[in-house]
């Protein structure tokens, strides 16, 4: 524990150092020109709870038994007990009032209820989309966070990246992010961007010819975080919904690190 705490402290102090370094740097005016891009990390929250691990299952069992031990009997249990007693009296040849005989016993009720409950089939936790491994479906991997990526051409190569676009004059970065998202996912899909501030950052340099031609060094991508609310995506689009593992495999390497830095662990 001590080790972990130390690590934590180190992490925090790193942040402070970093912030100070940035202050100093910002004093000098940068002559390099960079394109400003806004990207949106659109995420779907898990629909169902993740599976419990061994320890969690064990502890769940324990807390259930402890709760039972501490509880007192309910009206229904009392009724059941008295009915059992009455039955015994009847077997021994005792007399009982007819009223008690005609009623449905507690055991009968319990049986009918449990048979009714057995008839209900909850939906499967593994969906058709999981079986087909359909990367486009929102119904896949219901217990995971899914991130939206689209196929994009950067230079000559194609990558699966977060939807991104360059900033136009007169726009705030948030407006750019909203415009970019809408232009890619269409009007049907509803998503909410969280906060006016970007959550992640990535920069890359253009190839030398382009740099000389446009007098621009590269692009700075500011990533906004958005949450999927409802709606469907246009079918023509080449996109994927990926969980953390798949994201790790799909995204190009330096970009991946920037994205993973602000994503919640699973």
């Amino acid at each position: 524990m001590f080790k972990l705490n130390c690590l934590l402290l180190q992490r925090c102090s790193n942040n402070v150092k970093y912030a100070i370094a940035i202050r100093k740097e910002s004093g000098t005016v940068s002559k390099e020109k960079w394109d400003i891009f806004a990207a949106v990390c659109l995420e779907r929250k898990p629909v169902i709870t993740p599976k419990l691990n061994e320890l969690e299952k064990e502890y769940e069992e324990l807390s259930k038994t402890i709760e039972f031990e501490r509880s007192v009997k309910s009206d229904f249990e009392l009724r059941h007990e008295s009915e059992v007693k009455n039955l015994e009296i009847l077997k021994k040849g005792g007399e009982l009032d007819v009223e008690g005989m005609l009623k449905q016993t507690a055991q009968d009720l319990k049986d009918s209820w449990s048979s009714e409950a057995r008839q209900f089939q909850p939906a499967d936790r593994i969906t058709d989309a999981d079986k087909k491994n359909d990367g486009k479906s929102l119904k896949r991997k219901l217990d995971k966070h899914l991130v939206f990526v689209t196929n994009q051409t950067i230079g000559k190569d194609k990558f699966y990246l977060l939807p991104q676009g360059s900033r136009q004059d007169g726009e705030t970065l948030r407006q750019t992010a909203e415009r970019v998202l809408k232009s890619i996912v269409g009007d049907e899909l509803k998503a909410q961007i969280y906060s006016n501030a970007p959550i992640g950052f990535y920069k890359y340099k253009y190839p030398l010819e382009v740099r000389k031609e446009n007098n621009v060094v590269g692009a700075k991508v500011f990533i906004y975080f958005a949450r999927y609310l409802k709606g469907q995506l246009p079918q023509k689009l080449d996109y994927k919904w990926l969980d953390r593992m798949e994201l790790d495999k799909t995204l190009p390497t330096p970009y991946k690190n920037s994205v993973q830095q602000f994503l919640i662990d699973e």
Binding site: P198, S258, F262
Partner: peptide, 10 residues
């Protein structure tokens, strides 16, 4: 940290 870095770069 990630957000602060993005803001500083901005």
């Amino acid at each position: 940290y990630s957000q602060q870095r993005a803001l500083d770069e901005l």
